[in-house]
Design a protein around this nucleic acid. Structure first.
Length: 265
DNA sequence: GCCCAGGAGATGT
DNA sequence: ACATCTCATGGG
């Protein structure tokens, strides 16, 4: 059956937990859980996924083999695609990606995850034993001291100020319809959003597959595997030029392959 | 104690 | 446009 074959192509733990595209999914004996559009969702490996919105969230209807073929002349890319079967680049709500990656700045994955959980438990809506990421209204109404007390640190005022901008009409939902450069420029006008966070929001939350986030790992692998050097901004410009419309998807495979040591730096 | 973590803002040049 | 410093916080 067609759907079963398609479902076999996602690795839930890899895509929802280990890849660090999002920080709010949990894994328990019930499976992989998160709140999606107000509803608690529990997924188990191998289960048939027919809901159109969920299929889109999990990017199940994109042909990843075709994307791997676009980069068949790049040995490191082929190794990364081979090393990470079932890795999919999520299509998250833009606010959730923005919320998560503002908190990710100069932070580590374990702390980001516990921080997203703490703020969600305090300000988000509960559904089926899970806490959703609070909406911009709830975050805008929070106090800086309260978010600091939950561990947000110096990111607390950034998160609040950006939440207020979204409440006051920042066109978050229309970023996917803008050209990459313009959408990126809009995002970096927000507090707590630099080049890297903007690219994560565009890639994971706005359908901009050409966005190529450059963090410490990606800067390192661009140097070691592609002979590139320079500032993060220069590396990002080179990568977008070199890798094109699906560079961000390639980036996720390279990032995860480097971070796990599946492909040695 | 130091260094790092999926960086960004402010400042000075 | 580029370099440097500071910003919370927990873990190695």
């Amino acid at each position: 059956m067609k759907t079963q074959k398609t479902n076999a192509r996602i690795d839930l733990r890899l895509s929802l937990i280990d890849a660090a595209q999002c920080f709010h999914w949990v894994e328990t004996e019930r499976g992989f859980g998160a709140v999606l559009e107000g509803n608690g969702i529990w997924l188990k490996p191998g289960m048939e996924i027919v809901d159109a919105r969920l299929r889109r969230y999990l990017d199940l209807d994109r042909d990843y083999q075709a994307i791997a073929r676009e980069y068949e002349d790049i040995p490191a890319a082929q190794k990364a695609f081979t090393a990470c079967p079932g890795l999919r680049v999520l299509n998250q709500p833009p606010w959730e990606a923005l919320f998560s990656f503002i908190l990710s700045a100069n932070n580590n994955v374990v702390r980001i995850r516990s921080l997203v959980y703490a703020i969600s438990r305090a300000y988000g809506a509960e559904a089926d034993g899970l806490y959703g990421i609070p909406g911009p209204e709830a975050v805008a109404a929070a106090s800086e001291d309260a978010l600091r007390a939950l561990g947000a640190g110096y990111r607390a005022p950034y998160l609040i100020e950006t939440a207020r901008a979204v409440c006051e009409g920042f066109p978050l939902e229309s970023l996917r319809d803008l050209p990459y450069e313009e959408a990126h420029a809009r995002l970096t006008s927000l507090k707590g959003v630099g080049d890297k966070v903007a690219d994560c929001v565009l890639l994971f939350g706005c359908g901009h597959a050409e966005a190529f986030p450059v963090d410490v790992w990606v800067a390192r692998l661009l140097h070691n595997w592609f002979g590139q050097h320079g500032s993060r901004r220069q590396l990002g410009q080179w990568a977008r030029q070199r890798f094109g419309a699906h560079g961000g998807i390639l980036q996720q495979y390279l990032f995860h392959a480097a971070r796990t040591g599946a492909v040695t730096l």
